[in-house]
Computed example of a mutant assay.
Amino acid sequence: MMTDDLRIRQVDAGAARDTRRVEAIVRLANEVYAAAETGMWQPGTARTDVEEIAAAIGSGEIVVAERGDRLVGVVRIGSTERAGWFGMLAVHEAERGTGTGRRLVETAERLLLRPGIDDILLEVLTPVDESNASKRELDRWYRRMDYVYLRDDDFADHRPDLAARLATRCVFRIYHKPLPVPQAANRALPGLSASGRESRHQES
Rank of each mutant, 00 (worst) to 15 (best):
I25M: 11
P160G: 02
A167F: 08
G14T: 10
R143G: 05
L113Y: 08
I77Q: 01
R27I: 07
D146T: 14
R7I: 11
I117F: 00
L113C: 14
D5H: 15
I8C: 11
P180Y: 00
R143T: 04
A35F: 02
E37P: 04
I62K: 03
R103W: 04
V75F: 02
V124S: 12
L71M: 15
Y142N: 14
A94M: 11
I25Y: 08
I77G: 05
T126R: 13
R136A: 12
V91A: 09
A16G: 05
D161I: 07
L71I: 13
A188F: 09
A156S: 11
G99A: 01
G78C: 03
G97I: 00
P115K: 03
G116E: 07
R200S: 15
H158K: 09
T100I: 07
V26E: 01
H201C: 10
T48C: 00
M145P: 01
P43W: 06
R144W: 12
A55K: 13
V128F: 09
G78S: 08
R110M: 05
L113K: 06
A55I: 11
A36S: 02
D5C: 12
L89M: 00
P43S: 10
I120G: 04
E203F: 15
L166G: 00
E23D: 15
I77F: 02
V74Q: 14
H158R: 11
Y175D: 08
S59P: 05
V26W: 03
D139A: 14
R70I: 11
R7F: 02
Q42A: 09
R20Q: 15
E109V: 02
R27F: 13
P182S: 06
L121R: 06
L122E: 09
P182G: 03
Q42P: 03
T100H: 09
R169Q: 06
S79F: 07
V148T: 12
A24F: 08
E203V: 12
L189G: 11
Q42W: 01
T38F: 06
R76I: 08
G68H: 11
T107V: 10
N186V: 14
S59F: 08
A65P: 03
R9H: 13
D129R: 09
T98Q: 15
H176V: 03
R197H: 11
A54I: 05
I8Q: 10
G116N: 00
T107M: 13
G44A: 04
H201N: 05
A13K: 15
R17D: 15
V64H: 12
G99V: 01
E23H: 08
S193R: 00
D12E: 11
N132D: 09
D119Y: 10
L166E: 02
L162T: 01
A167R: 07
M2G: 09
V11D: 13
